[in-house]
C-alpha cells in the first residue's frame, strides 16, 4: 500500500515538472506560434543566476543564502527577465516569420544561453544547497515522502489554479486569451500586441524558473544540462495535449510523468535504462491515433 502511494507521489511530482514546462511552452505558442526550444536553457540560467562565475565544483553562491522569501522571487524574476529579454532582442524580429524560422531562432538562442553559461561556469555540475529544509521526509498516510515532493505537487496545483484565475478573471488574461485565439482581431480591437507577447514570455520564464527551483532543490546541483530533459518531455506534452491548448499541455504533462514512473516500476531491471524509449513509443502511438493531440487546440489553426 505504502509502495503504491510512494509511486503515486513520484508520478505526480514528475508530472508536475512536465506540466509546468509544457505550460511555459504552450503559453508562448498560443500568442505567437513559436515553439521555444530555448525554454530548457532558461531553466538552467535561472539557477546559475544565483552563482558567481567560477569553474570550481563548489558553487560560490551570490544570492543562494537569501532567505526563501527573497530567494524564490529572485529566481522567478531571473527567469522572467531573461525570457522577456529574449523576446525583445531576438523573437520580436521574427514576429512575421514562419513557425519553422522562429523555431530555428529559438534553437540558436538556446545555444547562446548554454555556451554563455559554459563560458562562465564550465560544464561541471556544481553542488548547491537550495532550500535545504525541504529535503527531510514527511509521513503521509504511512508513506514517507520527501517534503520537497509534496511541496512540488502542491505548488504546481497552486500555480495551475492561480494561472487559471489570472487568465479568466484579469483584464490582461482576457486580452491574452483573445490574442491567442486571433491575434490580428485582438489588435484591431486595440489590444497591444507587444504587451501581450511580453506578458506571455514573462509568465513562461517564471514557470521555467519555478522548475529550476524544484530541480535545483531536488538534485542539489546546478547543471547546464538540467533543463534539457524537462524541456524535451514538456515539448512532447504540448504536442500530445494539442499545441496551444493550456489544459491539454497540463494534462499531457501529468500523463507523461505517470507513464514514465509506471514504466520505471513495471519494466524489468534490464529494460529500465530504456524507459524513455518506451515512453516515446507510447507518444508515437498516441499521435498515430490522434494526430491533432489529445485535446485538440485551437492553436494549430492558421492565424488570420
Amino acid at each position: 500500500m505504502t509502495a503504491i502511494l510512494q509511486t503515486v507521489f513520484d508520478a505526480l511530482s514528475l508530472g508536475s515538472l512536465y506540466a509546468l514546462g509544457a505550460l511555459g511552452i504552450a503559453l508562448i505558442f498560443g500568442v505567437m506560434r513559436l515553439v521555444n526550444f530555448a525554454h530548457g536553457d532558461v531553466i538552467a540560467f535561472s539557477i546559475f543566476a544565483l552563482l558567481w562565475p567560477s569553474t570550481d565544483v563548489v558553487a560560490a553562491v551570490v544570492a543562494g543564502n537569501l532567505p526563501w522569501f527573497l530567494l524564490i522571487p529572485f529566481v522567478l524574476a531571473m527567469g522572467a527577465g531573461l525570457s522577456v529579454l529574449a523576446e525583445i532582442v531576438v523573437f520580436r524580429r521574427f514576429r512575421n516569420a514562419s513557425p519553422a524560422t522562429m523555431m530555428i531562432a529559438s534553437f540558436a538562442l538556446g545555444f547562446v544561453i548554454r555556451y554563455f553559461l559554459l563560458m562562465l561556469f564550465s560544464s561541471r555540475p556544481k553542488s548547491i544547497s537550495l532550500l535545504p529544509a525541504l529535503s527531510q521526509p514527511v509521513e503521509v498516510l504511512g508513506a514517507r515522502i520527501p517534503l520537497l515532493q509534496l511541496i512540488t505537487i502542491l505548488t504546481t496545483i497552486a500555480i495551475l489554479f492561480g494561472l487559471t484565475a489570472f487568465l479568466k478573471r484579469s483584464r490582461f488574461g482576457l486580452e491574452m486569451r483573445a490574442a491567442a485565439e486571433n491575434f490580428t482581431m485582438a489588435r484591431v480591437l486595440g489590444v497591444r500586441a507587444n504587451r501581450v507577447i511580453m506578458g506571455a514570455f514573462a509568465l513562461s520564464g517564471a514557470l521555467a524558473a519555478a522548475i529550476a527551483l524544484i530541480l535545483g532543490s531536488q538534485t542539489g546541483t546546478a547543471d547546464i544540462q538540467m533543463g534539457t530533459n524537462v524541456m524535451l518531455m514538456a515539448f512532447i506534452a504540448t504536442v500530445i495535449g494539442g499545441l496551444g491548448s493550456l489544459p491539454g499541455a497540463v494534462i499531457a504533462g501529468f500523463l507523461l510523468g505517470a507513464a514514465s514512473v509506471a514504466m520505471q516500476v513495471s519494466l524489468s531491471i534490464d529494460a529500465r535504462p530504456f524507459r524513455d524509449a518506451f515512453v516515446y513509443g507510447a507518444v508515437i502511438l498516441v499521435l498515430i491515433f490522434r494526430p491533432q493531440g489529445l485535446l485538440a487546440g485551437r492553436g494549430t489553426k492558421e492565424r488570420v
Binding site: 486580452e175 483573445a178 486571433n182 482581431m185 485582438a186 484591431v188 485551437r298 488570420v304
Partner: peptide, 24 residues
Amino acid sequence: MVPEGREVFGSLTTEENLLVGTGM
C-alpha cells in the same frame, strides 16, 4: 473595424468578446 468573416473569439464567452476592446 468589423472585418469580413466576423472573427468572433470562439473560445471566449459572448460578454468577454464584447469586453476585449474596452481595455484601451
